[in-house]
């Protein structure tokens, strides 16, 4: 039976359902990965037994000396990544994997409605969105240059590129806001048509991700001022970079399917 789409309720239902599903999937993966990891603790109980201590630490010391310097902070010895990769990075990719499902489900629904002719784009400004795309690509470039700068211990350039990224991200949100206002002045709202619902849901979620990225970027900048990042310890910047580039990738798709293919 064909579904009715008058109020765009199906689109909202798909979005909510996908969000719930992706949350469950991400939670399940995280649970499995971190339980697996707990069983493979590098610094285990046996190393620190009284028997090992009586042995003059001959067992414990070689094991502990194998622990990388990079995982020793503030006198606390942490287990190195047993999966052979950074936990932060793995966690971010797990999150991004759920995000891919979320956004591609939204995009898939949009493409399906376009394919059957129920959804017709209205009053889109291709040139303005092209400028927005250029701005977002520039911000991806400055983020990757910021990572490059901190890895080369160039703190001045690092801060400069982070600042540039914040300004570019804010400019993108400004352009997006202007376009929303322009569309609303033409009577296109989230409830005016299926296109309106789809457009505002997709660009709204993307914009929300950009805003979250800007908050994160600002915190990264504050940490950069404190000198928290060094050539050996910059995983925080790399993890943020993954998130920001993903937001860029999502926009590349949205730009093509919403603005270019009309």
């Amino acid at each position: 039976m064909a579904l009715t789409l008058e109020s765009g309720a199906l689109f909202a239902l798909l979005a909510g359902g996908t969000l719930l599903l992706t949350g469950l999937v991400a939670g399940g993966i995280a649970f499995l990965v971190f339980n697996l990891d707990r069983e493979r603790r590098y610094v285990d109980e046996s190393v620190l037994t009284p028997a090992a201590a009586a042995d003059g630490g001959s067992v414990a010391l070689p094991r502990l000396s194998a622990v990388s310097e990079s995982v020793i902070h503030s006198g606390v010895v942490e287990a190195p990544p047993s999966l052979g990769m950074s936990h932060n990075k793995l966690g971010m990719w797990t999150f991004l994997s759920s995000e891919i499902m979320f956004f591609t489900a939204l995009i898939g629904a949009y493409v399906a409605f376009r394919a059957i002719g129920d959804l017709v784009p209205e009053h889109l400004n291709v040139v303005l969105s092209g400028v927005g795309t250029f701005v977002l690509i520039c911000s991806s470039f400055t983020v990757v240059l910021a990572l490059d700068a901190v890895q080369e211990n160039n703190q001045q350039n690092f801060v400069f590129y982070l600042l540039g990224s914040i300004l570019l991200g804010a400019a993108f949100i400004g352009i997006q806001g202007y376009e929303w206002a322009e569309l609303m002045s033409h009577g296109v709202t989230a409830t005016s048509s299926l296109f309106g619902t789809a457009f505002f849901v997709m660009t709204g979620f993307h914009g929300l991700h950009v805003i979250i990225g800007l908050v994160w970027l600002t915190l990264t900048l504050l940490r950069a001022f404190r000198g928290d990042f060094t050539p050996k310890d910059n995983m925080g910047v790399e993890t943020f970079g993954l998130y920001w580039h993903f937001v860029d990738v999502v926009w590349i798709v949205l730009f093509t399917i919403i603005y270019l293919i009309q």
Binding site: M1, A2, L3, M85, K89, L90, W93, T94, L96, S97, S98, I100, M101, T104, A105, I107, G108, A109, V111, A112, F113, A115, I116, D118
Partner: peptide, 25 residues
């Protein structure tokens, strides 16, 4: 592993799209 994590969700989405188009038609 990161590449697989990037690509694995895509077939599921294609499945959703196919199901939706079939249902609408």
């Amino acid at each position: 592993l990161f590449t697989y994590m990037f690509l694995v969700p895509v077939p599921f989405v294609l499945l959703i799209m196919a199901a939706l188009i079939i249902d609408l038609l």
